[in-house]
Computed example of a mutant assay.
Amino acid sequence: MMTEEQYLMLCQRRQGFDSFVWQTPPLAIAAQAFLLTASFDHDTTRWVAVLLAIFSGLLGAASVQLLMKHRLCEIEDSERLRVFEEANAAKGYAVLHGPRGPVAGVPRNWIVRRSSFRVWTGTLLGFVGLAIVAAITAVIG
């Protein structure tokens, strides 16, 4: 059984994972943009361009894995918190963690119904694809 102190620590850890989820994509895209810019530069030698493109692709794949790992940890902690909150509802804990659903009276259009996590994962994978194109372009010359 989790204590209230452990609950508070878990809340902080879950919040940290949530922050990491949204910090990963912009940092990864900035790094990939730098590498791809150098790879596509006409002044870059062919094999350096290939290496930069390959490294950009690896960075993109690693970023997707990191994004997914942070999200998984955040979901696991949310579930642990939800279980504690349900078990301690009599002490005044409300269930705040876990999957979110629509709120009555708050409209949700098609764009906000999309998972931002999936959109960012797709974007990062798009950069991996661009890195593959950059590598092929550099090899072909």
Rank of each mutant, 00 (worst) to 15 (best):
W47G: 04
F84I: 06
T44S: 14
A53F: 00
I54E: 01
T137Q: 08
N88V: 05
V139W: 12
A131P: 06
F40D: 01
G141R: 13
A135S: 13
L27R: 04
L59G: 03
F40I: 04
T3R: 08
I29D: 04
Q32N: 11
W47H: 09
T123V: 15
S56K: 01
A62T: 09
T37Y: 10
L51Y: 04
A49E: 05
P107N: 11
S56H: 01
A49H: 00
R13L: 15
R113D: 12
F84W: 02
V64R: 09
H70E: 10
V48S: 06
A28R: 06
L66D: 00
W120Q: 10
D43R: 11
L51E: 02
Q6M: 14
M68Q: 14
I132T: 10
V103G: 00
L59K: 01
V139L: 14
K91L: 13
T121C: 12
Q65N: 10
F17L: 07
G141T: 04
V119N: 05
V48T: 13
R100M: 08
L36G: 06
V112D: 07
V106N: 04
H97N: 15
K69G: 09
A131Q: 08
P99C: 02
V128E: 08
E74M: 14
A89G: 05
H97Q: 02
L58N: 01
G129T: 09
A89S: 14
A53N: 06
T37I: 03
T137E: 05
S115T: 00
F55T: 11
V64C: 12
R13G: 00
S78K: 11
L67I: 06
W22A: 13
W22S: 15
H97D: 03
I54A: 11
G105N: 12
I75W: 07
E79P: 00
P26D: 07
S78T: 10
F17H: 15
R80V: 03
G98L: 04
L59H: 10
L52M: 10
A138W: 05
E86G: 11
G101Q: 07
A90Y: 01
T37C: 09
V106Y: 08
S116P: 04
G92L: 10
L66P: 03
P99Y: 07
T3H: 06
T45Y: 02
S19P: 00
P26M: 10
E85T: 07
L66R: 08
Q6I: 03
Y93M: 05
E74P: 02
T3M: 02
S78M: 09
G60H: 03
P99W: 12
G122S: 07
R46M: 12
G60C: 09
I75G: 03
R100F: 10
R108G: 03
A30V: 15
V112P: 04
E86D: 11
Y7E: 02
S19M: 13
R114T: 06
